[in-house]
């Protein structure tokens, strides 16, 4: 960014203010970094203590104080699969409508955008209430991995739409003009020219949405279920990793060690998803350049 050193010499008129300001800036940087490193350090040190292959693959025992977290990993994976299976296609289509079909400055487009903005801000616990009332009760799914995944899908949909709309809009006009110059239909323009160019962005948008879903707890408290069994199907209730961390920390005395180990697993999974999104996007971009 900007190379401006906020330094001041003693005889500069504004010097005292400048020195104080710079000191405050450095202080803030130190405090924020220190706090962040403290949390991450604790997470790493305490989490590593009981993180073993047996912990990952084992079943929980003694209310989660002992044993592993395999059922939670399975529940999480299933809920995430449901979420992505819904969010990726619906989000992509909706973003295509916003970027390609809605008229600029039009009322419908503006209304859709406002409601997505508000939706993105709705607290996750409210999504939980809605998911419970709609998926679990009204649709009769009961607390299940499916209901949890669907609730998550509703929650991350605005994020997915915004990110993929951004990458669609970032496609240079020249690409569209080239396709229109060939008199391609709208569908063909989109499929042959715009989507391939936007794909890396859409993929990393999907990954970011997945990461957001993966770190969610509140929306799943009463939609996905609480039991520690491995769900046999999407209709079964299952406890996802984040809910497991919550339960161990709050309701299980002596569950801290395993809570930290589970938290470390969750954070590593998140980092992998984020890095994976970046890598996939980069690979796709290189592939196009290679052609």
């Amino acid at each position: 960014m900007h190379d401006l050193a906020l330094t001041a010499k003693a005889r500069d008129p504004a010097s005292l203010a400048a020195v104080l300001f710079v000191a405050a800036c450095w202080g803030a940087l130190a405090v924020v970094s220190g706090a962040g490193l403290w949390v991450l350090g604790d997470l790493l040190l305490r989490g590593m203590a009981s993180l073993t292959p047996a912990f990952l693959l084992g079943s929980p025992a003694d209310g989660g104080r002992a044993g592993g977290i395999w059922p939670m990993i399975v529940s999480t994976a299933m809920a995430m699969a449901v979420c992505v299976a819904i969010v990726a296609p619906v989000g992509l289509l909706a973003s295509i409508w916003l970027s390609e079909f809605s008229t600029r400055g039009g009322r419908t487009g503006a209304a859709v955008r406002v409601s997505l903005d508000v939706l993105a801000g709705v607290p996750s616990i409210v999504f939980g209430l809605f998911g419970y009332a709609f998926f679990c009760v009204a649709l009769g799914l009961g607390p299940s991995v499916l209901a949890g995944g669907l609730t998550l899908a509703c929650m991350v949909l605005p994020l997915m739409i915004r990110l993929s709309e951004q990458s669609l809009r970032a496609v240079p006009v020249s690409v569209r003009q080239a396709a229109e110059g060939l008199a391609l239909s709208r569908w063909a323009t989109l499929r042959r020219a715009v989507l391939p160019a936007a794909m890396p962005g859409v993929i990393s948008g999907t990954m970011l949405s997945l990461a957001r879903a993966l770190s969610e707890t509140a929306a799943l408290l009463f939609t996905a279920g609480y039991v520690m069994r491995t769900p046999g199907s999407l209709d079964d209730p299952g406890r996802v990793l984040s809910v497991h961390i919550y339960d161990l920390a709050m309701n299980v005395p002596g569950g801290d060690t395993n809570a930290y180990a589970s938290a470390l697993v969750l954070v590593v999974a998140l980092l992998l998803v984020a890095a994976g999104g970046a890598a996939l996007a980069a690979r796709r971009a290189e592939f196009r350049r290679g052609l």
Binding site: T217, S242, I245, D256, A259, A263, L266, V267
Partner: peptide
């Protein structure tokens, strides 16, 4: 990217 449940913990 830290989940809020981890911060809570």
């Amino acid at each position: 990217g830290l989940p809020s449940v981890v911060l809570g913990l």
